[in-house]
Design a binder for these strands. Structure first.
Lengths: 115, 115
DNA sequence: ACAGAAGTTGAAAAATTCTGCAACTAGCGA
DNA sequence: TCGCTAGTTGCAGAATTTTTCAACTTCTGT
């Protein structure tokens, strides 16, 4: 019923949706609970219309919800464990950094003993 | 030493790197162990040069390694738990799908009782 | 040395995404 | 009702990414 998109493509779209610094920061901020746009804006430093665009991307994807409360709009994580995803990402990123440090060390050695 | 990029930006780049169907499929295939390009190519159906480009993206990011073995090049996951990341993504994706299904149900009800 | 298989690379064209401006809607208080 | 605050939307130009084609490198068998 819902589009019938192959899973790997849905995943790719999902990750692509995450692939923007402002959107990452929004998701991280929302992990501490719902937050009005005003506060996001204060925390993130980006033009208000740009933030709106990025929020729209998140909304469309369904990962956050927006509800109007009087004059302000409050955003919240729609579902679950974004935190876990971020943790997994950070772990891999850390490993990769370590790997590259290792590689750099190797390169330095190779250079030192270069003929 | 390494560029000094804010973490949220590193994360965004990481997720962006994941945001392509071919790259997702490669990473999923490599979870079962190292694999020569030939086999990836057979599994994925995409032009060979296109696959190469995507493999280059993965290589540059450091998430996979390539080693030449005679005439073939074998790719492998560089480090750790890509599997866990994929699981986390699938969980969220599933939740979101459920959420949307729920929303659709609500909309249908609203429609049914529309004045 | 030559031919063929396996991949990679460079570059240009095509497609997508991002940014910022201007215009616009919604709610609230005077 | 007017004006202000809070956000969103449409859109054009800029920047990135994706795709493809042609050329190129390596390695192996003969």
């Amino acid at each position: 019923m819902t589009g019938r998109v192959p899973l790997y493509q849905a995943k790719a779209e999902f990750f692509r949706m995450l692939g923007h610094p402002v959107r990452i920061r929004v998701l991280e901020l929302l992990q501490d609970g719902p937050m009005p746009v005003r506060d996001l804006l204060a925390a993130i430093e980006v033009e208000s219309s740009n933030l709106s665009q990025q929020l729209a991307v998140l909304r469309r994807s369904g990962i956050v919800t927006a509800t109007r409360e009087g004059p302000t709009v409050v955003y919240a994580l729609a579902g679950g464990d974004v935190a876990e995803l971020m943790r997994a990402a950070r772990r891999i990123l850390t490993e990769m950094a370590a790997g590259q440090a290792g590689l750099l060390a190797e390169l330095r050695e190779a250079e030192a003993s270069a003929s």
